[in-house]
């Protein structure tokens, strides 16, 4: 378990997980809902790159388990708050009758304000890319 802040989102889709899963792994399908251009190599260690407007989201797939689970890292190159690969997105596709409940959790976000807890900022600032901080 991590103490870092998370963001969660869920939705129910009237289609089985098998129909939903490719929307997280197929470049032509992912751009129908996330971003404008994508370069995806859906296997552990493979590239996850989606351009969302002027923000390039960059990371790698950590886990690809069709049709129920996909995990990838997420960051914005040149954006020191959330460098490439610095956060993790976990997606669960849960069968629900003839549909799918999609549960998305974005882990390891930059720390929010937590009174009495400063480790979030320590972690965040400490995790800045060595290449940048040592120059």
């Amino acid at each position: 378990m991590t103490a870092s802040p998370t963001v969660t989102a869920t939705t129910r889709i009237a289609a089985p997980p098998e129909a939903v899963f490719p929307y997280f792994t197929d470049p032509a399908l992912i751009v129908t809902w996330l971003g404008d251009q994508a370069n995806l190599d859906p296997r552990p260690g493979g590239v996850f790159a989606v351009d969302i407007g002027t923000s390039p989201a960059r990371g790698t797939y950590l886990s690809v388990e069709p049709p129920t689970r996909v995990v990838f890292t997420w960051g914005l190159p040149g954006n020191e708050t959330m460098p490439t690969g610095s956060t993790t997105v976990e997606v669960l596709l849960i069968p629900d009758d003839d549909g799918t409940v999609v549960s998305l959790t974005h882990h390891d976000l930059p720390a929010e304000h937590r009174p009495g807890h400063q480790e979030g900022w320590d972690t965040f600032i400490g995790a800045l890319p060595a290449a940048v901080t040592h120059h």
Binding site: V7, T11, I13, V20, Y23, W33, L34, L104, H106
Partner: peptide, 19 residues
């Protein structure tokens, strides 16, 4: 953080429509 808190529900709504 708020930016992402709004970002993902919007994105999943688009996913639902597309699928």
């Amino acid at each position: 953080r708020s930016l992402l808190a709004e970002f993902w529900p919007d994105a999943l709504a688009r996913l639902k429509t597309a699928v």
